[in-house]
Simulated assay, not measured.
Amino acid sequence: MPKTRYLKTYASRNIRGKRKVCRYLEQNEITRLFVPPTAMLSKKRLLAMLSDHGTVYVKPDIGSQGIGVGRVKQSEHGYSLDTTANKKQVHKTFGTAEELIAYLNRNNRHKVIVQAAIELDTVGPNERPYDIRSMVQRKPGGKWTCTGFLVKVGSPNKIVTNYYQGGKIWPIDKLWMRKQLPESERQDRINELRLASLRIARTLSRKRSGMHEMGIDFAYDKNNRLWVLEVNSNHPQFHPLKKIKPDEYKKMVRFARSYGRFDD
């Protein structure tokens, strides 16, 4: 499976591995509330999570752009796996959990995590799932600041929302408009996202010094509970905002340049 790598030439350290990020967040009594049940893949953990949650996601512990992410369901005939391969979505079935796990390990360069599936909130007449990228940054010696948001709206019938996998990028005010949220609720959600972003950034930066940026992917479920799906501290992308939300984009660029990032 192709490996995406960025040559980081600027000062901002990162935390490598999705499971490590979840473990750090689970150690804090507040941030643990945002983390779906997550573990390294094994037969015992896979079966337990399927029993508890019905559907799970499997993800490379190290990876990006939705590559290698899969959704697993159990049926009376075995197990089904819908997974992303480059820009395509592939459906496979397996008779036993051992066959499924062997396939996942064989087709991933890194270890795999298993995570309880969140029934994502949707938007529009086609009920497209979405998640929200919160960009948090700090200038050297400064405090963490939530510099803006972008929304990733999934392509119909895709298991991930990533732009690379056919998703659309919206400014967050377009999401609120399409959801027909009243102004008071829009502001409540922005405040909730900002507060959660700052708590996560502070928690993780206590575990890893020298961090100056994070892209935190949040999702609301069908009951409007907020979850964190992923934290990308290795070169998180915000360039799609350049055209759709230029003020927020310029703010992110100002912060990024303070720690030596000039690529966006």
Rank of each mutant, 00 (worst) to 15 (best):
K251H: 13
R254K: 15
N224I: 09
G260S: 11
L175F: 07
K179R: 15
A256Q: 00
Q115G: 04
E185G: 06
R71Q: 14
L150D: 04
L7M: 11
T31M: 01
G17Q: 04
T55C: 13
R16W: 08
S205Y: 06
A196N: 00
T31Y: 07
K18L: 06
D131W: 05
E127S: 14
Y57D: 06
R106Q: 14
S134Q: 07
P129E: 09
F94A: 10
S51I: 05
N105V: 12
D217L: 05
N157D: 14
A256E: 03
F255Y: 15
L204V: 04
A117C: 10
P171L: 00
H239G: 05
G70Q: 07
V21P: 00
L193V: 07
R225T: 14
A85L: 14
K242A: 09
I67N: 01
D263E: 14
H110D: 14
R257H: 14
L100K: 01
E29Y: 12
K251A: 12
L204Q: 09
P2A: 12
N223M: 14
R138E: 00
T96I: 11
L193A: 06
E29C: 11
H239M: 11
G260C: 10
T84A: 05
Y6G: 03
L41P: 00
A11H: 12
V58G: 04
M49V: 02
K139P: 07
P156R: 10
V112M: 08
Q187G: 02
D264T: 12
T147N: 08
L193E: 07
V21L: 07
K18G: 06
A39P: 04
T83R: 10
F238W: 05
R261Q: 08
G260D: 01
E127I: 06
R19V: 11
R186T: 12
R189G: 00
Y103T: 11
K174G: 04
W170T: 02
G148K: 03
N223I: 10
A11S: 14
N108V: 09
K59F: 09
K250S: 15
T122N: 07
L241D: 08
P236G: 08
V114C: 05
V160Q: 00
Y6S: 13
K111E: 14
M252S: 05
